[in-house]
Design a binder for these strands. Structure first.
Lengths: 117, 117
DNA sequence: TTTTAGTACCTTGCATTGCAAAGTATTTTG
DNA sequence: CAAAATACTTTGCAATGCAAGGTACTAAAA
């Protein structure tokens, strides 16, 4: 039996996205009050797929960690929504995360540069 | 009992790194024949921490998937080493991965730009 | 009024995967 | 020969994304 398990490229993309999920979610919320569907829509528009079963637990965790606040807002058609905003701690943490991201992408850029030459 | 589970910033860094592990490992191997310790050393020099228990399984998997070849090479001091190189498929896949990475970092850059203004 | 459809939030269970720690094997050094 | 050093491998645990199923509320259709 040949043992060359095909390599899954799509999975690589998923992996990379996962690593930045919290970061990108906080970035979106930093732009203004949003609720879950808004976030999913905006992520999708940037090719950053995220689904409910992933998003809700993350939002809850970020809230428990003191990075997010939310307030219930009545909808004109449908059940009420949780609109999220960053807390001061959230803003601060997002700043740190941005630095972490800059560091990582810098390292990788360096590797890619070697690779291309 | 207050329920504000402190948020772990170091974990965010770890998360981001994890997402790019296979990618960065392949990038390093693309630069020339290396064995595990070389990879760990080079990653560390770029602030990309990776440890044995993580690296070996990944190398095995990439080999099983046909992206890597290895050859045993005697060491002057110690047991023999597995020196890895990219297969043609590996090179091709690395090219695809680079595109995936470019896409992701572009999306995130766009988000950060909004955030900063 | 009951039913159906739509929207929104939450939870459960599984699969993947990084990693600490322990294990095997080989070579060198005291 | 014992001990240390090096290199590769494996095991078990914890974290986490996600598919799938669940609850609840609103509005429109039957």
């Amino acid at each position: 039996m040949s043992k060359t398990n095909k390599f899954d490229l799509e999975n690589v993309e998923a992996q990379m996205r996962k690593g930045t999920l919290e970061f990108t979610i906080l970035l979106i919320i930093s732009q203004g009050e949003v609720y879950a569907s808004d976030i999913i829509k905006e992520m999708k528009s940037l090719d950053l797929i995220v689904v409910e079963g992933t998003l809700y637990p993350i939002l809850s965790r970020l809230n428990r960690s003191g990075l997010l606040n939310y307030s219930w807002v009545e909808s004109e058609s449908g059940p009420p929504r949780k609109y999220y905003t960053l807390t001061p701690t959230g803003k601060e943490t997002l700043g740190h995360m941005t630095k972490v991201w800059d560091g990582l992408s810098k390292s990788i850029r360096r590797l890619i540069k070697n690779y291309k030459t």
